[in-house]
């Protein structure tokens, strides 16, 4: 077997096919395979075979340092499930990346040990490129997976953190705690509007005592919520505007429009009780 220019990849492809079993056996003992395939070593070896085969095809294709080649789809498919399992088990993307990177050492060691001198140099370069590409693909998968998990957790958290309380007949309140970003505002709005329907509420109180900061963005979110409440035919009052927040609002020149505001939740409830019975809204 001689290696011409650019033939390093072909040599790696031949090598991977010839050493498929040995490599799979070694990989099966590494964290990535071991942690995912806990049901038995055979399953881990089988999964490792699949990844070796997919990488063989990439090497056969020749473009070992290009993360866009179609041949990598099989590699992605082989990695995706394992990476998802690792993320679900709590491994962070850097941890997962390190576990994927571990797969490199046995490959390089075997190429260095077993290939003839004439072939070794080009093959080592190609094998290094190939395993670098594998690591990038792994990182890409774990990061996109991470994005989905973070989004899911944030959603669950904000749903849990948004209780709607029935304070009186036809009066509901949401005590907001923490920052109000747009994802959170969506959840608050949906939860509050559903509660207005369920409770036949005429007044909704948004209590922002637990909101640390009111800037223009937060003010906008509050106004959106108040407007949606009004479109639904209920009235909205914002309470819990602490003195320093009131000052910030004035200093920033934030216009709260014609949102009704009260200093405390008690004041807001008093206002709400005055409204109930007339139960009116105006768009």
């Amino acid at each position: 077997m001689t290696v011409a220019e650019n033939g390093g990849a072909a040599a790696v492809a031949d090598f991977l096919r010839a050493r498929r079993e040995q490599l799979a056996q070694q990989w099966a003992d590494l964290t990535l395979f071991r942690a995912v395939h806990t049901s038995g070593r055979d399953v881990a070896v089988h999964a490792a075979h699949r990844l070796v085969d997919a990488l063989t095809e990439v090497a056969r294709d020749g473009r070992v340092d290009d993360v866009t080649v179609p041949a990598l789809d099989q590699v992605r498919a082989a990695l995706a499930q394992m990476i998802a399992a690792r993320s679900q088990a709590g491994a962070t993307p850097p941890q997962v990346a390190a576990e994927v990177a571990e797969l490199k050492r046995p490959v390089i060691a075997m190429v260095g040990r077993e290939l003839a001198d004439a072939d070794r140099g080009a093959a080592l370069i190609a094998a290094t490129d190939l395993m670098g590409t594998l690591r990038l693909v792994g990182m890409e998968i774990s990061l996109s997976d991470e994005g989905a998990i973070v989004a899911r957790q944030r959603r669950q958290l904000s749903e849990v953190a948004t209780p709607v309380l029935k304070l009186w007949d036809r009066v509901v309140a949401v005590p907001l705690i923490g920052t109000l970003d747009s994802a959170r505002t969506q959840v608050v709005m949906e939860t509050l509007l559903e509660a207005i329907v369920d409770q036949h509420a005429a007044v909704a109180i948004l209590d922002i005592t637990g909101v640390p900061l009111v800037d223009t963005v937060v003010a906008q979110h509050l106004m959106k919520t108040a407007l949606a409440v009004r479109l639904m035919g209920a009235r909205c009052v914002v309470s819990g505007i602490r003195p320093q927040i009131a000052q910030t609002i004035v200093q920033l020149g934030i216009d709260l429009g014609d949102i009704t505001t009260r200093a405390t939740l008690a004041d807001a409830l008093e206002w709400a009780l005055g409204q109930v019975g007339t139960s009116i809204g105006r768009a």
Binding site: E190, L193, I196, L227, A228, L231, M232, G233, R282, A283
Partner: peptide, 25 residues
């Protein structure tokens, strides 16, 4: 009787109902 998803969508678009009064039922 506006439904919650309708109200949310209108607010996101920046639509109001100028000159109209609203009621629950």
């Amino acid at each position: 009787g506006m439904r919650p998803p309708v109200a949310i969508t209108m607010v996101e678009m920046g639509l109001g109902l100028p000159g109209l009064h609203t009621a629950r039922s």
